[in-house]
Write a protein that binds this DNA or RNA. Structure first.
Lengths: 242, 242
DNA sequence: CAAATAGTGTCTGTTAGACACTATATG
DNA sequence: CATATAGTGTCTAACAGACACTATTTG
């Protein structure tokens, strides 16, 4: 091993490829809410490894164009949906010598949320990706450890439903409180008290009344709200009951 | 680009080193509580890059011996402290083309907690590592983005002090409630109501009364407790006030 | 009008904040 | 005894749960 006397000469002679290293990918788990269901964006893999199986819309860091990990996640999502989701947060990094047949590998997983309508058209026409209902993933053959990653992401989102309105990013820009409550109920797997749900959101002033209303043809129309700036970062001091 | 007809032949010809990839390291942020202060374990770097600066006790994945990312974190900590800390949790992954002069790099950071006494002897004699008080980090020259990583870890631990007793892992196996409360107060940067702090811990039955007491010479001796199995995973439904 | 859905009033229960109080140690 | 620290009693405030009630739409 050569010794260097200063950092400049060390860096001049540094060879990044001297040592073998784990493979590194970035895998976004993009959720949406449509037809009273949670759905996740998956891609049918057209190349080896795991060809023919369904996987997350991730990939390798492009060291020439990506400035950081989040940029990689955003780029991969844009490639499949043509848009940038309004919510993107790092979830967890999964790394082991067993999760990928090619050897030691690490993936930095992200959770993303967006409205179904926002990209449905692009996905249906151009893309090889598809929205898959979370409740039917059991029947889909999934690549690598992506089933676990999706489950991990869903569990984290379930937690957030207890103390935030982050799930609202899976809805269109304008949405009703009954819609948001139902989304939370799907995430939590249980009914919520209408009054409790509305009261805490109103008291914290997280939403803006657009003045519009929407009826689905049955019953009284519901007020359409949109999120106030920063509401995604708000956390209630007290959780809903699990 | 060669096309393959089955996965076995694809894997047989797969060359992991065909593409350049980001550097990947694992960096544990090991905190402890000693002399009424939070301290973090740092190493004075003896080789380039960032030689002479203080850095986290991390390093590259050893693909031959490490089964997964947590194993790497554990191994690096064992190398410096000779023991495995009772608390180790993945924190966040930091990755960009600017954080390391050698180029695009990613580090998977972990938060670890352990008692000061547990490894003080080993550190003082054998190791190149040192406990540094968090309040004096401003004066230390830190390597890479490790200052930000430590700040990120501290902020996450501060959050946990609001809804869990995870910080207790920074104390010896047996500790008193006034000790634990003071640790939380240091993390939160504010005084807590003695009654509130004790009541929630007692109601949730998180600690075991060892039957022993300890006096520091002044005043009434305090009961020594130890954590009940699983108490680290417990979260209170309501946060302490920030 | 009935049916369906949106939204409110209000009581109760749980839990943290405030703070005065008691308990147990040392000198 | 005084002083110091540990630990408790108890009232209040905040906020979620429960659930009956009213409001607004369609047919």
């Amino acid at each position: 091993m050569t010794e260097y006397t200063d950092e400049v000469s060390f860096l001049a002679h540094y060879n990044r490829r001297e040592f073998d290293a784990p493979l590194l990918t970035v895998d976004p788990v993009l959720f949406t809410y449509h037809e009273a269901q949670l759905k996740v964006l998956l891609v049918e893999r057209s190349a080896y490894p795991e060809r023919g199986l369904w996987g997350l819309p991730g990939g390798f860091v492009d060291m020439a164009s990506d400035q950081n990990l989040e940029a990689t996640a955003q780029r991969k999502l844009r490639e499949k949906t043509s848009v940038t989701p309004p919510y993107l947060e790092q979830l967890y990094s999964f790394g082991s010598n067993t999760r990928d047949k090619r050897g030691w590998s690490v993936t930095v997983a992200y959770t993303a949320l967006m409205a179904y309508q926002e990209c449905a058209a692009h996905i249906e026409t151009v893309s090889d990706a598809k929205w898959q209902p979370l409740d039917h993933l059991n029947n889909l053959p999934l690549a690598f450890d992506h089933r676990q990653i999706i489950e991990f992401a869903r569990e984290r989102l379930r937690q957030k439903a207890l103390y935030s309105i982050v799930p609202a990013y899976a809805l269109p820009e304008k949405f009703t409180l009954p819609e948001l409550q139902h989304l939370h109920e799907v995430l939590l797997g249980k009914a919520l008290q209408k009054k409790s749900f509305r009261r805490r959101i109103e008291d914290a002033e997280l939403l803006i009344d657009t003045g519009e209303k929407r009826s689905d043809g049955n019953g009284r129309p519901a007020v359409l709200y949109r999120m106030k700036e920063g509401s995604g970062g708000y956390t209630f001091v007290r959780n809903l009951a699990e």
